[in-house]
Design a protein around this nucleic acid. Structure first.
Ligand SMILES: [Zn+2]
Ligand SMILES: [Zn+2]
Length: 408
DNA sequence: CTAGCCTTGACT
DNA sequence: AGTCAAGGCTAG
């Protein structure tokens, strides 16, 4: 039940019942460390396999630009991975041979002859077209049987519902169906998302309540909140590493290498510089501004308001848990699980409150309400991030990619 | 609606 | 130039 050990040791519990105070003092700091390690440092190599479920995100419509610049901003794989501290060269080389997904010549849905990868799975031409039509026309099917129809080449057209479910279960991604219907080109910009989400998956495994919720619940929560967690992590990193307050930001020299908490244009130029570093080629400021301007503005204002909260490490960990455990109204989980999540979130809200009320070092106490009122802003910013599809921008702005331009 | 074949376009 | 994975087209 309790998140931490329950023996009353050492520190006097502020709260009578429960062991929340203990959580606030011992475990949280540990989470904080493991979290920072998992987000900004390389993840452990052996934790590659395991759950990593299929994330189907509420599709953010894509490209409103036919510029090649947006592609340049969104693509280019290797360098950004090393920026995030993840090793791609290693894993991709291994997974190409180990993962059987790419090799199969059979449709993973109906076992007909495969014509290659389509929307994320090896499928036949028929299942490809079926999936495309289903997503494009937003079809919702219903099974006349018990959702147990077998799907093979012969009877694949007998039940659309079961066929579509099997498509999803085999890894086909609805987001790979383009809203703008632009043919040709490449999609691979969700790779960053997958990498980031995978790091967050690793993070959730370190949480004390990981075992208390089923994997589906974690999947559901992360699918919904990962962008907010990215922004929160980056924001906290920025506040802790760089000057918590930046009193003199107005007159900046362009070559400043520090992120600004107030001036979006400074950050845009910072993004431009680091993008040039990472991509190996200059990108006109005008284009960076056009593609990432809205996102950078939003992120900067988010940083500004976040920095004013003066969040301590312990409060940050609570905030992160609260954000993760924030269920939206349309959650499709079982009621028992929903209650469990709400209970857990409430625990962390209480923990946060306890921590804030402790006569800490700062006389300036941020109220719980102030912090909680900040969360909608985080939510709004996350939708901007999702829409921009440039998920790495917060990391790029917060951490300097030190000379990692060594292509083969 | 289905699915085989064709066209596109970025990446290599 | 060749590959891969998107979209389009159209008999059946
Ligand atoms: Zn098939
Ligand atoms: Zn069925």
């Amino acid at each position: 039940m309790n998140v931490a050990a329950d023996s009353t040791t050492g520190t006097p519990p502020v709260f009578d019942h429960e062991s929340l105070a203990l959580v606030a003092q011992s475990n949280l700091l540990q989470f904080y460390l493991t979290h920072l390690a998992s987000t900004l440092m390389p993840i452990k190599p052996e934790t590659r396999d395991s759950i990593t479920p299929n994330f189907s995100l509420p599709g953010s419509p894509n490209s409103d630009t036919d510029d090649s610049v947006s592609a340049a901003l969104v693509s280019s794989t290797q360098a950004l991975f090393s920026l995030l501290g993840t090793n791609t060269t290693n894993s991709s080389a291994v997974s190409k041979k180990v993962v059987s997904k790419t090799a199969s010549k059979l449709c993973s849905v109906c076992a007909d002859k495969s014509t290659g990868l389509h929307y994320g799975a090896s499928t036949c031409e028929g299942c490809k077209g079926f999936f495309k039509r289903s997503v494009q026309n937003k079809k919702i099917y219903h099974c006349n049987q018990n959702n147990l129809c077998e799907i093979d080449k012969q009877n694949r057209n007998r039940c659309q519902s079961c066929r579509f479910r099997k498509c999803i279960s085999k890894g086909m991604l609805t987001e790979a169906v383009r809203e703008d219907r632009m043919p040709g080109g490449r999609n691979g910009n969700s790779i960053y998302r997958d990498e980031i989400v995978e790091q967050l998956v690793e993070w959730t495994k370190t949480l004390p309540f990981f075992d208390e919720l089923p994997v589906e619940a974690h999947t559901h929560l992360l699918t919904q909140r990962w962008a907010e967690l990215v922004l929160l992590s980056a924001g906290y990193y920025a506040c802790s590493v760089f000057s918590p307050d930046s009193p003199d930001t107005t007159q900046m020299i362009d070559e400043s290498d520090e992120i600004s908490f107030t001036n979006p244009e400074v950050n845009l130029r910072l993004l431009q510089n680091r993008l040039a570093l990472v991509l190996g080629k200059e990108i006109p400021f005008e284009h960076v501004s056009k593609e990432a301007g809205a996102l950078v503005v939003r992120f900067t204002t988010l940083l500004h308001s976040f920095s004013k909260l003066k969040v301590s490490p312990e409060a940050y960990v609570c905030l992160k848990a609260i954000t993760l455990l924030h269920l939206s109204a349309d959650s499709t989980l079982d009621k028992s699980i929903i209650d469990k999540v709400k209970t857990l979130q409430d625990h962390f809200v209480k923990t946060l409150q306890i921590h804030l009320h402790q006569p800490g070092e700062n006389s300036e106490t941020t109220s719980l309400a102030q912090i909680l009122e900040w969360l909608p802003e985080l939510q709004n910013a996350s939708s901007v991030l999702l829409h921009s599809k440039m998920f790495y921008v917060p990391f790029l702005l917060c951490k300097n990619p030190r000379r990692l331009v060594f292509d083969e």
